[in-house]
């Protein structure tokens, strides 16, 4: 029990030499900005200076009447509604597929992980070309006579969102697969053998053994991918262009915060801060929902 005990004669200020830089940095760049965001949201501060007068709850009142805000909120919520179930389920299937150590499995695992490593901009540009009107996906669909005209993946705001969700999911699969691989290793093997002896097929084993066995990991991934969905910016920027789809129709909340707050000419940081507070509130709601959902199942 010698671990750092009082017997080590450490002056009271010595520990702060060690933790000081880190603690100051996370307080200044991790906590203060949120307090500052809340304060900003009661002002009309401009991103490049000027403004900053107290305007009370004006920004929040404006928020409630702003169709662009509600559109961005809708887009972000829809994003989570579709991306979360896909990111909870598909990586589990993927993990199940690569769990068994058969020859060459290391190669497959690594290959499935590759999209995780690439920057969203780089893979987004690839997808943008794959999905363009004359791109290979439309060409293939045309060759199969499934479509007469190109599917406007990148010019219809709903399809931009759908394409962006597909991109998010594709890029996230490998990441969450690793979470599940770790979780699967903790599911007792003999449960499977017993079930197999009882005549349970692969689907039933999956539902009755695998899913309960990795439930906590599913919860964790649900929360992480939900928060991730509310943070989406780059997918929309690369696939839908700098405007965020035609007329900004595919903008997510972070995208709208960028536009509303930080545009050098028309930006209003105070208003953007109010949207930021709303975004944070949504993150909290999501985490609380997941928490409630998770504890109920126990």
């Amino acid at each position: 029990m010698a671990r750092g005990g009082a017997a080590l004669y450490r002056a009271w200020w010595v520990p702060f030499l060690w933790v000081g830089p880190a603690i100051v940095a996370v307080a200044v760049w991790g906590i203060f900005p949120f307090v500052n965001t809340v304060l900003l949201s009661f002002t009309d501060a401009k991103p490049l200076g000027g403004g900053g007068a107290f305007v009370g709850l004006d920004n929040y009142a404006r928020l409630l009447d702003d169709p662009d805000f509600w559109l961005a909120t809708k887009n972000s919520v829809l994003y989570a509604v579709f991306a979360v179930p896909l990111l909870v389920l598909l990586p589990l299937i993927l993990a199940q597929l690569v769990f068994k150590k058969i020859p060459g499995i290391g190669f497959f695992r690594s290959a499935f992980y590759t999209p995780v490593l690439a920057s969203m901009v780089a893979v987004g540009l690839v997808w943008q070309n794959l999905l363009s009107d004359q791109g290979p996906i439309n060409t293939a669909l045309g060759k199969l006579h499934l479509i007469d005209d190109a599917v406007p993946f990148l010019s219809d705001s709903t399809l931009i969102l759908a394409s962006a969700i597909a991109l998010t999911v594709w890029k996230g699969l490998g990441w969450y697969m690793i979470f599940y691989l770790a979780a699967l290793a903790n599911v007792p093997r003999d449960l499977y053998e017993a079930a197999e002896l009882d005549g349970a097929g692969p689907v039933r084993r999956f539902i009755h053994i695998t899913i309960p066995g990795v439930r906590l990991t599913m919860m964790l991934i649900g929360i992480l991918s939900g928060i991730g969905s509310l943070r989406v910016f780059t997918e929309i920027y690369v696939l839908g262009g700098a405007t965020g789809g035609p007329g900004g129709q595919a903008r997510t909340l972070p995208f709208y915060i960028r536009d509303a707050a930080l545009d050098p000419i028309a930006g209003n940081a105070g208003y953007g801060a109010a949207i930021s507070v709303a975004l944070f509130a949504m993150t909290c709601v999501l985490a609380l929902l997941a928490h409630k959902f998770g504890s109920k199942e126990d």
């Binding site: 949120f34 965001t37 900003l40 991103p47 915060i257 930080l262 953007g272």
Partner: peptide, 15 residues
């Protein structure tokens, strides 16, 4: 705090 919810403030600080 997710980065996106504090980036306005971060920008002002950096500014």
């Amino acid at each position: 705090f997710p980065f996106e919810s504090i980036m306005v403030s971060l920008f002002m600080m950096v500014r």
